[in-house]
């Protein structure tokens, strides 16, 4: 599998896990069943772990959209009264 194909496959998996809570849970609890495959290799298990970690990170990222000047991402910029 080429690096590009592999990246695309992982993104598809991430997208599915992100948008389908049932699939996400199954992927965490029983990845072989979720992926419809036999016993997973260690490398594949690491990929699954990475997918689940990425989804968790995205969920944290979207929990707040704060992007104002003085948010955790910001610098100062509110004028004085």
């Amino acid at each position: 599998m080429s690096a590009t194909t592999g990246k695309k496959a992982n993104r598809q998996l991430i997208l599915q896990a992100l948008t389908d809570p049932k699939f996400r849970k199954q992927l965490a609890d029983d990845p072989e069943a979720a992926l419809g495959s036999g016993k997973l290799s260690e490398a594949r298990r690491r990929e699954v772990a990475l997918v689940l970690a990425t989804v968790k990170g995205i969920q944290a990222q979207i929990s707040a959209v704060g992007d104002q000047l003085l948010c955790a991402n910001g610098g100062c910029g509110i004028a004085k009264a």
Partner: peptide, 10 residues
């Protein structure tokens, strides 16, 4: 980068 508008309270 971040570029936000000034918020003028007055």
């Amino acid at each position: 980068i971040k570029a936000q508008p000034v918020r003028a309270l007055g």
